[in-house]
Design a protein around this nucleic acid. Structure first.
Lengths: 410, 410
DNA sequence: GTTAAATTGTTCTAGACACAAACATATTAT
DNA sequence: ATAATATGTTTGTGTCTAGAACAATTTAAC
């Protein structure tokens, strides 16, 4: 007996959890701030100077960050070098919509390197969306292999997405039901893929890089042409729920005599507050948020004003509920909800102070979303960054080490 | 120069964060399960046998847990000793209500050793409640000092409580405003004191020891004589918000023509669903939940049925919203809301499946609260256990080491 | 009933890791 | 030019966890 001893050592094996933790902490910090001096990292983490030194050294040798000469800021003492997140660590982002599939390449630090919008003539099926994404990624493949280390693919889907298995439970506006998009795209590209609700990812993006930077409790609401999506950050963490369905603030009850929503209930926010009603009053048949805002700004008819006031009332009820339930620091409004708020900035604040409970009402501020069209790319990429940030030293050591693709459908 | 070196070592100083983490993990596990074999602890934590051995040894010498002979379960192999949470580690719990102040002594593991209900002739002021609690605690003092190590005092208040500083922002039914109860009670007893909303603590108690045991996403709603309180557990953590005001589901908007609530808004759940309306129909002038349930069960008039159905409709709207927003596994109903649900068990399930989104609606189950009258004591004690559980080796080493009281107001 | 198998506690050792101290370096203030 | 300040770097130390080897104690097998 006695096999000649199994030292359980294959190459480096697992590092200590404490090391992984600290590496993760530093990488996340650099990712969120893009640039940070080593001294700042020492203060943020509470770790020892020398510890940060060795950790940064390891991250540099892993190709995760790089240092540049100190940007002398005029402080006393030896200048501290700047630590940057490496742009060659990147994630792919995919966002299917009713009229297009957008594919993006996003670097660590949230920089969108590339964004390709593939317009479709009709609403894409799940398989079509996957095929389009796989084809575009196949086209980028040689560049990706040469210059990037891809942590994976994140997919932002307008609908209910089970985050554990990446199955789209129901995306009403796309007409998808029970589509295992993450698995499909992963098989088609060879990259690990995860999917989540678009508004939830929007909340995360705005939290890290946008209007909610530095906060820990935030509510994000996006008004798009086909409905209202929501995402909630509680205590710095995205609210997921059991399966990742959480955050559907668009179906908050706001009106007793409301009509029936496509979700089956009556009186949902989404049926009362909609972009199409505003487009109609603005005299537009279609258009994006910028067009709408311009048109509404010019028309000052009482019909427009009444409708804006009406929609703000219902939006106010949703926000009142949300403020009472979440006690957030920030509400971030995106899409035409941002427009609505901009048209009458005092309105929502007034509703909140009158109707929400005085404790939480006094602590919340309403912001307009800051990230614009890059939002979905950054949010989806975050989905693929998350496992990497949790263990920056795991798996591949340097750029180029990427799981081989199994097939390129397209 | 060179002062003779400061070894920064005062006695034991700080242990490594990793040790504190593991100690905390083990203690919390034992606290939640009450009894657990050492082998089970090894599996739950993923730590090495030998590591668990040394950790348990340290916890035993700290008086946090104790071991008993294996309760031979008929498994192959050497039996593993049982690890129990020490009942001598305890916390004090205080719960002011409109007609009484209840003080409790709760051991690690959630066992209520003692519960003293001090009835008041009128609604107690904040200072009166503090004085009552301090007097009762002063009376228990010698017993506490002799037999217990008290981790602190937790206070469950029916109202908005700032969890950071323990100030009651507004407790409408008690008539309190901006009362620094935690500081007052701490000064009066010498124990560290924290305060929080009663329903939030109820949610935590039901999560750990009650109907939601083992779950990670739970909504707790309590219907009391003076209103409806709510608490939410998201991803295993109590939803706090910026200041701890989160969870106020009792003020969810449920009716457009609703009357004005004492919170200032209209159409709140609390104004439509109330115990007093049910008491009236049941022919009772006052009474607790058990009385109400008995009376309603006997009277089967259509007036009663209509009112029950009406209240369930509005409760259903709140739960619909909450399910869409939180995607929870469990809804726990306490107080007369539990009665309401018990009178027509299929009603809420039906509403949820018809009105909530199909993804989250299919994953949630409705439970009735399990902890009964001990709930507030357990929840409040949890508030005082939390810092202890985070660092079981911090500060005092054995029973009896308690911060000295500064004064005993009474 | 005796032996084998399985599971767990116990002891000892080694490797990893973070910290502190001492020193070196680079900037601003005097 | 010198002092003060802040930070990177090197080296040694103490802590902590995992793993190996062994002992203990039960059930299963023959």
């Amino acid at each position: 007996m006695m096999p000649p001893r199994t030292p359980a050592s294959a190459a480096t094996s697992e590092p200590d959890p404490s090391r992984r933790n600290n590496l993760s902490l530093l990488t996340s910090l650099v990712h969120h701030h893009r640039v940070l001096s080593r001294a700042q990292l020492t203060r943020h983490t509470g770790l020892n100077r020398s510890t940060v030194g060795t950790l940064i050294g390891q991250l540099i040798s892993l190709g995760v960050v790089y240092e540049t000469a100190p940007s002398g800021e005029g402080q006393v003492g030896r200048p501290s070098p700047d630590v940057h997140s490496s742009p060659s660590i990147a994630a792919l982002a995919v966002n299917p919509e009713i009229d297009a599939v957008t594919i993006g390449l996003v670097g660590l630090g949230g920089k969108v390197h590339k964004k390709i919008r593939f317009e479709t003539e009709r609403i894409p099926s799940a398989r079509e969306a996957v095929n389009i994404a796989a084809a575009v990624i196949a086209g980028m493949r040689s560049e990706l292999d040469a210059s990037y280390r891809i942590t994976g693919i994140g997919m932002a889907v307008p609908g209910l997405v089970n985050r554990d298995d990446g199955v789209v439970r129901h995306a009403p506006h796309l007409g998808w039901r029970n589509e295992p998009v993450a698995r499909l795209l992963s098989e088609a590209t060879g990259y690990p893929c995860q999917a989540a609700n678009d508004a939830s990812l929007g909340a995360e993006a705005e939290l890290i890089f946008g209007a909610g930077a530095g906060q820990k409790n935030l509510i994000y609401l996006n008004g798009g042409p086909s409905g209202i999506g929501g995402g909630v950050i509680a205590d710095g963490q995205l609210l997921r729920g059991v399966s990742g369905y959480a955050g559907e603030l668009g179906h908050t009850f706001v009106r007793s005599e409301g009509s029936t929503c496509h979700c089956g209930a009556t009186g949902c926010l989404e049926t009362e507050v909609s972009q199409s009603r505003l487009l109609g009053l603005a005299g537009l048949s279609s258009g994006d948020t910028a067009d709408l805002e311009r048109a509404l700004g010019n028309r000052n008819s009482s019909a427009v004003n009444d409708e804006v006031a009406r929609q703000l009332t219902y939006l106010g009820i949703t926000l009142r509920n949300a403020v009472n339930i979440f006690n957030p620091e920030a509400i971030v409004l995106d899409g035409f909800l941002g427009t609505l708020h901009a048209l009458a900035p005092a309105s929502l604040d007034g509703i909140l102070h009158a109707q929400a409970m005085e404790g939480p009402a006094g602590q919340v501020k309403i912001y307009r979303a800051a990230l614009g069209s890059d939002l979905m790319m950054i949010g989806a990429a975050e989905l693929a960054f998350t496992p990497f940030l949790a263990d920056p030293a795991g798996l591949g050591t340097t750029a180029g080490t990427v799981p081989a693709p199994t097939s390129q459908t397209g």
